[in-house]
Design a protein around this nucleic acid. Structure first.
Length: 878
RNA sequence: GGGGGAUUAGCUCAGCUGGCUAGAGCGCUUGCCUGGCAGGCAAGAGGUCACCGGUUCGACUCCGGUAUUCUCCA
């Protein structure tokens, strides 16, 4: 059965069991600071388990794209070395969100177990004799949990007793974190070894032993407890089912192969790698590893880019860059690829997976561009690093390379350490790995201490679970403090975080900055709010200090000027987005947005530099909508599906089932949580300040509106007036300037010629003044030239002469300058040294100096001494 | 957010501990030679050494700041 079919069968199976089939959530997570990427199927349903929100459907199934490259689950360095680790993989899952009020809609262990078994044995037709199941054995620790008898009984009805194994807490009790929902789980394992191997060792002995052919295929988690903050467990009022089945593994079993990489999920990519790099998979282990690495990583990277996460040098983008670079490096070392090649794999990938994940197809061009550009720049980095490494090796004497040097190569120049190690060992050098590790640790400690924030416990003043944002309608409201805490960081020093029962302050989000403002106590005391952010769905206000009586009622006031300016920029951003799609085409997608009070920044996918004509057209498109005075049409709490029907532009990052807010100005409709002007006329005017590239295939526009445009125009106008004034109020300043420039050029040339002439004359004069002393052409004289002029004329005079000794002095700004020139031949023959001469003569002008044996200068603050200097000069050659 | 590096001719880069009137290769212009695939020879043009400030007799070089960019860490 083909992988496409397996995926479809799974979804179809659960659809028939009254499950709502939902699309995969984005792999890149935008609004959870604790998680960069989706690493399990349940991520997008976390809030239902926590009870933060109520699910719309109680039974759900999907296939979820996951990435395990950071945090607790970090498989990156394992990928490729074996045949079953992946960075990106698909997780098939079915869920039941229990509802105590309507127990009938959900299900629990009985159904979950029966259906899992039915799907595997009847739909997939996996041989029952190769399956094993595990059941939680109970724990004797503080939790005092008993055996999961319910699951055991249910399994006993359908599986032979000797195929049911017991697992400990580590394998069979699942917890989301230190706190929250948890419960026992039952895993299904499959043994795909050959019959004779099975005869030798029973599969039961190999379950959970990391055997590549006896693998866990499906985990059924039964959430029935809640772990409280004090560590105790309590029964949950509503019980949930959370299951996850590795799609690639299921394919391996169904297709009768021994490795995930031999399934049709990967083989088309692997064939393509073989073709492009002219290698063969399966012959040489180093090459096999490299091919697996590349096949895996191109998937992770392509899906991330499609989700809007481009490789970059910070955060999640940096993780993506590292994955891509790891693949490039394996190709470079083991497949001998010295040119970008991975971008060519995107085509096959989008062909094989584009049906289930249309974003791959839609964004293929962008993905290819970005990957190719990254490959190109990393290959350059590698080239440069190889040269640097050569230098290090060449300078090395004892065949042992300093770990710090290797670290510098890695840290500063991005040259991979394992490549350094490989090359060194090939050349018979030893790498001081300890030194490297030490330097690495120092770097990590530095970073950590810099970003360290110490947070004190929340001081809770009032219980108020329903914090409300009223800032769409009010900029001022009466509030009470619900809780606060002190936070100390290196960067900001001591700050207080304050939460109110309700707030008019907009928290940073959707690209829009957080509001500023102040809090006024009844007695008139004021505390400034410096920033507003969202944390765990709570609006947190940042202040430098606390009000004196925290129990008071306060007047919370948003800085209106800044908020209004920000709103102008936010609405203009929507209009700009519309303009871009209208004028450049619908391939334009938002890739990033920053809305400040002073300006707006908008990143979008597009493949060429915008022409002046296009920029003008975009500006007028937006300005036309501003002068049309389009009113804001806002809808709050619209179901996502309905909003999409209306044609609202959805960005990546939104999840199914969310109630959303739509913002409409004329034909521009977007899902948006930000604040906007009441009417586009409020924006006054829109002006693009710059257009440029931020990455391959991504352009950035920066623009200003409203007051900022007024300031800009008045500044430009002032400058123009000043220019005009300087040009004697010329009616045609441009013409006048051009004429001036032309004249300037002509005069410059003229002056240059005159100076040349003058120098020639001066040179002639000075040459005439030379006197022969002791076989040397000698001159000591005060001249009216600056340092550069003296240098010039000295070297001019020195040309074609082997017997010249010059000592020039000059006076400038009350300071004296000496310079001494001696023909190189004289320096050698008579052991003269201009440097020492000038230093000795420097005494008379109260200064010091130096230089080279044939030309040196000295400066001093006593010009009166010049006469004496000129007198003493001759003494050096007699 | 923190650390390190880079910024010199149109391009790619040298320039060591401060002093060589700032260089190389490629490209460009001109002339001459030449039976080719990066043809040869010669001459020449092209530089605010990123920017601002400081130290110094003297700064491409040292120090501080800014900008841009690369890179590592979080």
């Amino acid at each position: 059965m083909k992988s496409q079919e397996i995926r479809a069968k799974f979804l179809e199976f659960f659809k028939e069991k009254s499950h709502k089939i939902v699309p995969s959530a984005p792999m890149v997570i935008k609004d959870d600071p604790t998680l960069m990427f989706t690493n399990a199927g349940m991520n997008q349903f976390k809030e239902f388990f926590l009870g933060n929100s109520v699910p719309k459907y109680n039974r759900v199934a999907d296939t979820q794209k996951c990435l395990r490259v950071s945090g607790k689950h970090n498989d990156l360095e394992e990928v490729g070395k074996d045949t079953y680790h992946h960075t990106m993989f698909e997780m098939l899952g079915n869920w039941s969100f229990g509802d105590p009020a309507r127990p009938a809609v959900g299900y629990f262990k009985a159904e979950a177990i029966a259906w899992a078994w039915e799907f595997l044995t009847e739909v997939c037709k996996i041989d029952k004799d190769s399956l094993y199941v595990t059941v939680f054995e109970g724990s004797k620790d503080a939790d005092q949990l008993g055996q999961d008898k319910e699951a055991l009984e249910l399994w006993s009805k359908i599986v032979a007793k000797d195929r049911i194994l017991f697992g400990n807490k580590k394998d069979n009790f699942w917890e989301m974190g230190d706190q929250g929902p948890c419960g026992p789980c039952s895993e299904i394992h499959v043994d795909i070894r050959s019959a004779e191997e099975k005869a030798k060792v029973s599969g039961a002995a190999l379950v959970n032993q990391d055997h590549p052919q006896v693998v866990e295929i499906w985990n059924l988690v039964f959430m029935q407890y809640n772990r409280k903050a004090n560590g105790q467990l309590e029964a949950l009022p509503s019980r949930h089912v959370d299951t996850g089945m590795g799609f690639e593994r299921l394919c391996m079993v169904m297709q009768g192969v021994q490795s995930n990489y031999d399934t049709d999920v990967f083989t088309p990519i692997i064939r393509e790698i073989e073709t492009i790099t002219n290698t063969k998979y399966g012959k040489d282990e180093d090459i096999n590893i490299a091919i697996r690495v590349i096949a895996d990583h191109i998937r992770a990277v392509s899906f991330s880019i499609a989700d809007g996460q481009l490789p970059s040098n910070t955060g999640a983008g940096y993780v993506i860059r590292r994955i891509l670079r790891r693949a490039i490096r394996y190709g470079f070392t083991f497949l001998n690829t010295k040119e970008p090649f991975m971008f060519q794999l995107v085509k096959v990938l989008s062909e094989t997976m584009g049906k289930s994940f249309p974003e791959l197809k839609d964004q293929r061009q962008l993905i290819e561009n970005v990957v190719k550009e990254e490959e190109h720049s990393f290959l350059k980095t590698l080239d440069q690093g190889l040269l640097l490494l050569d230098n290090i090796v060449a300078e090395n004497k004892d065949k042992k390379i300093d770990g710090r040097k290797a670290f510098e190569l890695y840290d500063t120049f991005g040259f991979p350490i394992d490549l350094t190690a490989l090359i060194l060992s090939e050349r018979g050098y030893e790498l001081d790995e300890k030194g490297f590790e030490t330097a690495m640790k120092e770097q990590k400690d530095r970073s950590r201490s810099a970003s360290e924030v110490s947070k004190e416990d929340w001081i809770v003043l009032a219980e108020d679970p329903q914090q409300e944002f009223v800032g769409y309608d009010n900029l001022e409201t009466s509030v009470k403090i619900v809780k606060y805490r002190k936070v100390t960081s290196k960067k900001e020093g001591e700050q207080y975080q304050i939460v109110f029962n309700l707030t008019p302050f907009y928290p940073e989000g959707g690209g829009q900055v957080g509001d500023k403002g102040y809090l006024e106590a009844p007695n008139g005391d004021v505390v400034y709010i410096l920033d507003t952010k969202k944390e765990n769905n709570e609006i947190v206000h940042f202040a430098k200090n606390l009000p004196r009586n925290t129990g008071d009622k306060f007047k919370a006031v948003v800085d209106e000027k800044q908020r209004r300016r920000t709103e102008c920029n936010h609405t203009a951003t929507h209009l700009l987005h519309q303009a871009l799609r209208e004028i450049l085409g619908t391939h334009v997608e938002q890739k990033g947005s920053a809305v400040h009070s002073k300006y707006l920044r908008f990143d979008f996918s597009h493949f060429a530099k915008l022409t002046t004509d296009e920029l003008v057209a975009i500006e007028s498109f937006v300005n036309a909508r501003i002068s049309n005075a389009l009113p804001l049409e806002e809808q709050r709490n619209v179901p996502m599906e309905k909003a999409l029907e209306q044609g609202a532009m959805a960005l990546f990052g939104e999840k199914y089932g969310d109630a959303v807010r739509t913002i409409r100005f004329g034909q521009s409709i977007e899902l948006c949580g930000g604040t906007h002007v009441r009417n586009t006329a409020d924006i006054w005017h829109f002006r693009i300040r710059s257009e440029g590239a931020v990455a391959a295939g991504i352009r950035r526009i920066e623009a200003i509106t409203s007051d900022a445009v007024k300031d800009f125009y008045s500044e430009s106008n002032n400058t123009l007036m000043e220019i005009k004034e300087l040009l004697n109020n010329s009616q045609e300043p441009v013409k006048a300037l051009a004429a001036l420039q032309e004249e300037n050029l002509r005069l410059k040339k003229e002056v240059e010629n005159l100076l040349k002439e003058k120098a020639k004359n001066l040179k002639g004069e000075l040459l005439n003044e030379l006197v022969e002393v002791n076989g040397i052409q000698f001159l000591a004289k005060k001249v009216d030239l600056d340092a550069a002029g003296i240098k010039d004329i000295s070297f001019e005079m020195g040309q074609n002469r082997k017997d010249l000794f010059l000592l020039f002095a000059s006076e400038n700004d009350g300071k004296a300058l000496l310079s001494c020139y001696i023909s190189k031949e004289l320096v050698a023959e008579r052991k003269l040294n201009a440097g020492t001469i000038v230093r000795e003569l420097g005494k008379y002008i109260q200064g010091g100096g130096g230089g080279q044996p044939f030309f040196a200068t000295a400066g001093g603050k006593n010009p009166a001494g010049i006469a004496e200097v000129l007198e003493k000069a001759k003494a050096y050659i007699v």
